[in-house]
Amino acid sequence: MHELSIAMGIVELAEKEAEKAGSNTIEAIELEIGTLSGVELEALEFAWPVAVKGTALELAKKIVHQPQGKARCTRCGLEYPIENLFDSCPECNCYLKDILQGKELRIKSITIPD
């Protein structure tokens, strides 16, 4: 379960950014975790309370956006939704593609007290 490492990475980054803005508490955090990011939301939920305990994020409200997978076929140029990395183009069946969306693993924003 690498989600604990990832949750701890979120804490480290969020705390540093909050500190830069002069705060040691975070009221809310907005995450973007794409469906192709390799991170299981359930596992992250499970790891979250352990990772945030005693940190600036302990009481923070967590909002998770989940961008859906989207790819562009490198053969015919069609943009199509994908659920799996091995999905092929619905038009030409080609597996070569550029992933346009779904691999996001980002902190979109944090909210600190005014």
Binding site: I6, G9, E17, E27, L105, I107, T111, P113
Partner: peptide
């Protein structure tokens, strides 16, 4: 009520 800081930073 708080101040929102837009980050858009990669967690990894």
């Amino acid at each position: 009520t708080g101040r929102v800081i837009e980050l858009g930073k990669d967690i990894m």
